[in-house]
């Protein structure tokens, strides 16, 4: 029984981490849009390349934030949560 419970905990942590990383889609699309628009802008006004590039990198880094939240949660689920949850289970059983 205990083995089954631990197995469920580990499996669900891995599944949760995988599902959390679905959030990576959003920043991917957003950054792609940002870079596409920046390319257009540079194509239209090549002299403004420096400013556009700086702003684009800033915007990309900010758009990345939601993806990084998901990443932090996934890392916590993989490296921190299993040991804690198994510890709680062991305390509960005694």
């Amino acid at each position: 029984m205990v083995e089954l419970a631990i197995g469920i905990i580990l499996g669900c942590c891995a599944l949760g981490a995988g599902m959390a990383m679905i959030a990576g889609i959003g920043p991917g699309i957003g950054e792609g849009n940002a870079v596409a628009k920046a390319c257009e802008a540079i194509g239209r006004q090549p002299e403004s390349q420096g400013n556009v590039t700086t702003t684009m990198i800033m915007g990309c880094a900010i758009a990345e934030t939601t993806g990084l939240y998901a990443l932090v949660i996934a890392i916590l689920l993989i490296f921190v949560a299993p040991t804690r949850l198994v510890g709680i289970l062991m305390n509960y059983i005694g």
């Binding site: 880094a61 900010i62 990345e64 934030t65 990084l68 939240y69 990443l71 932090v72 890392i75």
Partner: peptide, 16 residues
């Protein structure tokens, strides 16, 4: 929170 998570998440994800 977002400032700290952004910086730390980027560096940590790189090393992972």
């Amino acid at each position: 929170v977002s400032m700290s998570f952004r910086h730390y998440g980027n560096v940590l994800s790189g090393s992972v």
